[in-house]
Simulated scan of single mutants.
Amino acid sequence: MALQKNIGKALRALRLQKGVSQEKIALETGIGRRYMSDIENGRRNVSLEIIEKLADFFEMSASDLVKEIENAAFPPVTQKSLKRWLVEHDYNDSVVFQNPDYVSAVVGVSEEGRVIYSYEKMVRTLMMTDGMDYEEAVEFVDFNTIGALPTMGENAPIIMYEVEG
């Protein structure tokens, strides 16, 4: 049952990131809209054929889609648990973004204790939690978050951009 829920979470996040409806996915993949809804809500099993169709729709490999599903399985980190971890590892001066939703975009910590965030995950988080479309979320992150980095000092977070290869 947990796997079904993780598949649903991952697909919903990808759908929102792409800014498409369940109906559009259903039409373009040949998956029924009701079935697509049931998948997103964790009520249906998914065959490898469906995984392949969805991966094609999201323009990724099936293995990348499975990675997205695996990432949905990890329990969410909270701001409190992140700060506690930083203190336990002697990174007391680390700066954490105040937006509590950004904690899901944390991908690591540098040797000097600077928290590393994924730009794409920050954007995706705003889309899911605040209902922004992709362009609005990008504008928010660029202006409000990246724009604030110079005022945060030498322990400011690092924002990582994915490199397309």
Rank of each mutant, 00 (worst) to 15 (best):
S61A: 03
R15C: 01
P76S: 06
D64W: 04
G19I: 06
L54D: 11
D64Y: 07
A55R: 12
D130G: 03
A105C: 14
E40Y: 15
G147K: 09
N99H: 09
A72V: 13
S81K: 04
A105P: 07
N71D: 12
V77E: 03
A13D: 07
G42V: 07
I50N: 12
F57P: 02
N144I: 00
E23T: 13
R12H: 04
A148R: 09
S81F: 02
E139W: 08
L27N: 05
E139N: 11
F57K: 05
D64N: 05
R84Y: 05
F140D: 05
V66M: 10
P76T: 10
K67A: 10
K121W: 02
G32Y: 06
E120M: 08
D130V: 04
G19W: 04
M122S: 07
V77F: 04
P75Y: 08
L65C: 12
Q98D: 11
R44E: 14
E23K: 15
N99D: 13
K24N: 03
F97D: 11
T29W: 01
Y119I: 04
G131T: 11
I25T: 02
E49N: 14
N45L: 05
H89G: 06
E23V: 09
K53W: 07
Y134W: 02
S61W: 07
E59A: 12
H89V: 06
N99V: 08
N41T: 14
L82V: 01
V109G: 11
G30K: 13
H89P: 08
F58C: 09
D133M: 02
I69N: 07
